[in-house]
């Protein structure tokens, strides 16, 4: 069961990598967060920790509903064209994503999580989410993708935390969640401002400051 969820998490990440338009990207992010919720729920069930149930609730509330909704609203209101502006085409991006997944497997083995066990699989998926999130940030033109990239990286970190150490201490985890949400809202505010001042949100054209 856990293996299937991990596979789906990875699949949804690849969907984000090949997405060309903003709504598709946000939709795939929603799927990814949903699978992350299921993974956390399963971990909570196995380890019988009430705190992990609460974390799972936070994930479904914030990452499945609130943040994608907020991103959708922002995307509609700024009225720029929906193409993400790919520096790397989808096919090549997918190749990169596969390479990242392999690298994260090597990393998880080297960190001593054992081969073949479910935990090592979870760690592999978590690391590949982090790498792919970083890749999304640098290989797309629109400011939006950078926000989504950070969220993907953070999803990877939550998966990592819940699979290796049974989550962080509860208080810290809630604080991190709150912080993530606030940072998305603030980045949204800046996307608005960029759109207002520059009449576009292409980050590759933000090049006034040099040297």
């Amino acid at each position: 069961m856990q293996g299937i969820i991990l596979f789906l998490l990875l699949a949804s990440t690849y969907l984000m990598i090949i997405a060309k338009r903003m709504p598709a990207l946000i939709r795939s992010f929603r799927y990814q967060s949903l699978f992350l919720f299921l993974a956390t729920l399963l971990a909570a069930f196995h380890e019988k920790q009430i705190e992990l149930y609460l974390v799972a609730m936070m994930i479904i509330f914030l990452k499945v509903f609130l943040i994608p909704y907020f991103l959708n609203v922002t995307a509609k209101r700024i009225k720029v064209d929906e193409n993400l502006g790919l520096f790397v085409n989808p096919q090549l991006s997918l190749v990169f994503a596969l390479i990242f997944t392999y690298c994260s497997w090597v990393l998880s083995v080297n960190l001593g999580f054992g081969q073949g066990s479910l935990q090592s699989m979870a760690v592999t998926v978590a690391f590949s989410l982090i790498f792919n999130g970083a890749f999304l940030m640098i290989s797309r033109m629109k400011a939006f993708t950078q926000v989504v990239g950070i969220l993907v990286m953070e999803n990877g970190i939550f998966l990592f935390a819940s699979s290796v150490s049974g989550g962080m201490p509860f208080f810290a985890e809630i604080a991190v969640f709150f912080d993530v949400f606030v940072s998305v809202v603030i980045m949204g505010v800046f996307v608005f401002r960029i759109n207002k001042l520059f009449t576009h949100i292409d980050v590759n054209k933000l090049s006034r400051l040099k040297g």
């Binding site: 982090i130 970083a134 940030m137 400011a143 950078q146 990239g149 950070i150 990286m153 953070e154 970190i157 990592f160 991190v176 940072s183 603030i186 980045m187 800046f190 401002r193 960029i194 001042l197 980050v203 933000l206 006034r208 400051l209």
Partner: peptide
């Protein structure tokens, strides 16, 4: 605004690695 955007994105991405 350009400076603020670079600041918030680069530092947030960096700090995600610190969380890891």
């Amino acid at each position: 605004v350009e400076a603020a955007w670079k600041y918030i994105i680069i530092c947030s991405a960096g700090i995600v690695l610190a969380l890891l």
